[in-house]
Amino acid sequence: MLRRLFVPLIALVLALTAAPHAAGADTGFPSVDRKWSAAGPYATAVDVGLVTTLYYPRDIAQSPRRHPVIIWGNGTFAFPVVYRDLLLHWASHGFIVAAANTPQSNLGISMRAGIDLLAQRNADPGSIFYGHVDLDRIGASGHSQGGAAAIVVGADPRVDTIIPIQPGPLADVDTVHGPMFILAGQYDIVVWPALVKAFYNDADHIPAIYGEVRGADHFTVVGAPGPFAGPTTAWFRFQLMGDEEARGEFFGAGCRICADTRTWSDVRRNQPALQVPGPAL
């Protein structure tokens, strides 16, 4: 009874405050002219650690701005190197990606450790990350078991938005507090689209968008990420960088992914997502 009474009110508030860093925010990152699938303007580097591997803009020490964070969870028995192309793609767009070095990511412990590591590096005058990590703008993503972990860490108050990619079942989307872009593969027989839709259907308290990638199986995102690179980059650029050019990909009557039947076999937006304003005319 209480859920039925309060969910509509909560949904309205979240819709009005969705993408809190996007509405009128200017973080100073260069435009990519909506070329989300192309490499971004930053050369990249990798720092392999014991618990966390960092993918980041190579010249971050000379950057005039603070860079948003994406924490990443791997699929079962996988490590960050399996997803190297996708993680470097995000880094080329200006994100610091903290990827958990674990093949069992579901609890999200190692993903949260990535935030803690970057907080330490950001406060260390001897680190190249000193003063360049935007700890107020953090997203989470992951694939398969790591997709479930992205949902798990979506309950962390430090995490602003999540992209679960073909997530496993061991997560509770009711605990997520920020906008969600949840992805399935049309021909995925490991995590069936119906299982991903169940998460989407249950996420009636947050702005949520379901995207089913046409022709994708469970391993399409591995290696060259293909159709997963562009939309995920656009989402994070909007949610974490305030890139207004990316707003129209997801929100408003002209929602571009909604009309792109070549890339998507199914796109759904829940009521809170429909209430997020589209681009200014």
Rank of each mutant, 00 (worst) to 15 (best):
residue 89 H to D: 02
residue 58 R to H: 13
residue 145 Q to A: 14
residue 70 I to L: 13
residue 149 A to M: 01
residue 208 A to Q: 04
residue 139 G to A: 07
residue 127 S to M: 00
residue 35 K to M: 08
residue 194 A to S: 14
residue 5 L to K: 10
residue 259 A to L: 13
residue 34 R to L: 05
residue 94 G to M: 09
residue 277 P to V: 07
residue 60 I to N: 03
residue 108 G to P: 06
residue 50 L to W: 08
residue 263 T to P: 10
residue 250 F to C: 12
residue 246 A to V: 00
residue 215 G to L: 05
residue 28 G to I: 03
residue 140 A to F: 01
residue 176 V to C: 02
residue 248 G to H: 10
residue 146 G to I: 11
residue 9 L to Q: 13
residue 121 R to N: 02
residue 256 R to K: 06
residue 118 L to F: 06
residue 144 S to A: 03
residue 160 D to Q: 03
residue 264 W to Y: 15
residue 70 I to A: 04
residue 144 S to F: 09
residue 211 G to H: 12
residue 157 P to H: 07
residue 94 G to R: 07
residue 81 V to N: 03
residue 3 R to K: 15
residue 247 R to W: 02
residue 133 V to C: 00
residue 138 I to G: 12
residue 170 L to T: 13
residue 145 Q to F: 13
residue 10 I to N: 04
residue 214 R to N: 11
residue 205 H to A: 03
residue 196 V to L: 11
residue 125 P to Q: 06
residue 31 S to M: 04
residue 23 A to D: 14
residue 223 G to A: 10
residue 190 V to L: 15
residue 31 S to G: 14
residue 204 D to L: 14
residue 108 G to L: 04
residue 6 F to G: 03
residue 226 G to Y: 11
residue 94 G to H: 05
residue 251 F to G: 01
residue 193 P to I: 14
residue 264 W to N: 09
residue 154 G to I: 08
residue 92 S to G: 00
residue 53 T to Q: 03
residue 113 A to E: 02
residue 162 I to V: 13
residue 167 P to V: 02
residue 116 D to Y: 07
residue 260 D to H: 11
residue 237 R to W: 09
residue 235 W to F: 00
residue 16 L to Q: 13
residue 10 I to C: 04
residue 68 P to S: 07
residue 280 A to Q: 13
residue 230 G to S: 09
residue 115 I to P: 08
residue 114 G to P: 04
residue 110 S to K: 04
residue 232 T to E: 06
residue 25 A to E: 13
residue 175 T to P: 00
residue 256 R to A: 14
residue 17 T to Q: 03
residue 256 R to Q: 09
residue 231 P to W: 05
residue 73 G to K: 02
residue 1 M to N: 15
residue 140 A to N: 02
residue 37 S to D: 10
residue 203 A to C: 02
residue 198 A to V: 10
residue 242 G to R: 02
residue 79 F to E: 05
residue 266 D to L: 15
residue 55 Y to D: 08
residue 223 G to H: 06
residue 109 I to R: 10
residue 149 A to F: 01
residue 95 F to A: 09
residue 53 T to H: 05
residue 196 V to I: 09
residue 58 R to I: 05
residue 198 A to F: 02
residue 184 A to F: 06
residue 217 D to G: 08
residue 225 P to G: 01
residue 49 G to Q: 07
residue 73 G to I: 00
residue 228 F to L: 11
residue 155 A to F: 08
residue 281 L to Y: 08
residue 4 R to Y: 14
residue 107 L to Q: 14
residue 79 F to V: 12
residue 218 H to E: 08
residue 202 D to L: 01
residue 41 P to E: 06
residue 244 E to R: 09
residue 169 P to N: 14
residue 137 R to L: 07
residue 61 A to H: 09
residue 268 R to F: 06
residue 212 E to N: 02
residue 187 Y to I: 12
residue 6 F to Y: 12
residue 94 G to V: 08
residue 132 H to Q: 09
residue 91 A to S: 10
residue 89 H to N: 05
residue 66 R to G: 04
residue 190 V to E: 14
residue 34 R to Q: 15
residue 205 H to E: 00
residue 181 F to M: 07
residue 82 V to A: 14
residue 63 S to A: 15
